[in-house]
């Protein structure tokens, strides 16, 4: 039942605007992939083309070897969950979940069993007779999820399903969603602009910008070794430091980085996460602290050095706090990372 997905050269324009261009992606059976990008990057358009709500201008979409891009949406057997929940307001929870099963001409008995089973799966059994408007946002989204998975879809598409919920509930539902997806093993494509949500849920993240794929990788790879400046900055915070490699030595704007492994050649851009950037007070230090912010779990220092503004974060109870104006030296991790796909500055 569960399908793999192959998308080749998908393109969509709205008038003069290119919404999606040359989008190709392969998703394995049971894999959870997140499409991540700022609003207007084309991620939702991709999802709508897979569901059949929007027709692509070019490209192919294949589910387990079957071309679906010319099929009517009702023939694709793909589950859809919207940010707006899109529950049928005039039907009870049970009838919402039963809707897709009725369309499949199952018997009343089969439908009743499946509805009860699916509602139990999302912990909504006791709400079967309620109308959508009598439920909270989180409950409505659970019902929307139940309605989509009740038909045992070959592919589950989630369009910003958690974005309308408050932070606490979002985290709770995120964990439930992940557990449910692992348990059912449904191939899932999740569209989101929230990088922490994408990292927490997905096996692989597809970073998109301006209608095109920027980078694809596991959350860990994209976070720790991004190839582009866009990915480095979209997933969390980072410090971008222009540097040169000369005679095997790493030269930064404020001088040589001692002990740094030679990496790349000529001009490079280093990407150092704030939590990887260490600092120590030193009267001969080239940088000085311009701002200190206490964030609870972490302390953030902003350091001005050779015309750059860098961030350093340290965590734990004993994290040192350096007052504004303190001269500091910086320490870098041993395995420095540079953005290999960025043009040199």
């Amino acid at each position: 039942m569960v399908a793999n997905v192959q998308i080749i050269g998908l393109r969509k324009t709205f008038g003069p605007t290119v919404a999606v261009d040359d989008f190709s992606l392969t998703v394995a059976e049971g894999e959870f992939v997140a499409l991540l990008g700022p609003s207007g990057c084309g991620k939702t358009t991709v999802m709508r083309m897979i569901a059949g709500i929007t027709d692509p201008d070019q490209g192919q979409i294949t589910l387990s070897g079957q071309r679906i891009d010319a099929l009517m949406p009702e023939r694709r057997h793909v589950g859809l969950v919207f940010q707006s929940y899109a529950l049928f307001p005039h039907m009870s929870v049970a009838r919402n979940v039963a809707f897709g099963l009725k369309m499949r001409r199952q018997t009343a008995g089969q439908i009743a069993v499946k509805v009860a089973e699916t509602l139990a799966l999302v912990d909504m059994s006791s709400y079967a007779d309620r109308l959508p408007r009598e439920l909270s946002g989180g409950q409505q989204q659970r019902v929307a999820l139940a309605r989509a998975i009740a038909i045992e879809p070959r592919l589950l598409l989630l369009d910003e399903p958690l974005s309308n919920l408050d932070a606490k509930l979002r985290e709770q539902l995120r964990d439930d969603l992940k557990a449910l997806q692992r348990r059912l093993g449904i191939t899932t494509i999740h569209v989101t602009h929230d990088q922490s949500e994408a990292m927490a849920l997905a096996d692989r993240v597809v970073v998109m910008n301006a209608g095109a794929i920027v980078e694809v990788g596991t959350p860990r790879d994209l976070y720790q070794t991004p190839k582009t400046r866009f990915t480095a900055q979209f997933l969390g915070h980072t410090n971008i430091i222009p540097a040169r490699v000369q005679f095997g030595r790493m030269i930064t704007p404020w001088g040589e980085l001692l002990g740094a492994a030679p990496l790349g050649a000529g001009a490079v851009q280093l990407s150092v996460r704030p939590e990887d950037l260490g600092l120590a007070a030193c009267d001969q230090g080239a940088g000085h602290v311009t701002e200190v912010t206490f964030l609870g779990a972490e302390v953030e220092h902003r350091i001005a050095i050779a015309g750059l503004m860098l961030r350093s974060r340290s965590s734990g109870r004993d994290a040192p706090v350096h007052p504004v104006g303190t001269k500091v030296v910086l320490s870098f991790p041993a395995d420095l990372h540079h953005l290999s796909q960025e043009p040199a500055l």
């Binding site: 569901a51 009517m72 949406p73 009702e74 589950g79 859809l80 919207f82 899109a86 049928f88 309605r147």
Partner: peptide, 17 residues
């Protein structure tokens, strides 16, 4: 909302339904 029709279509309903 247009999402309702899209959701119904994805669940197997044709335009008439």
């Amino acid at each position: 909302p247009a999402d309702l029709a899209a959701a119904a279509r994805s669940l197997g309903a044709n335009r008439r339904v």
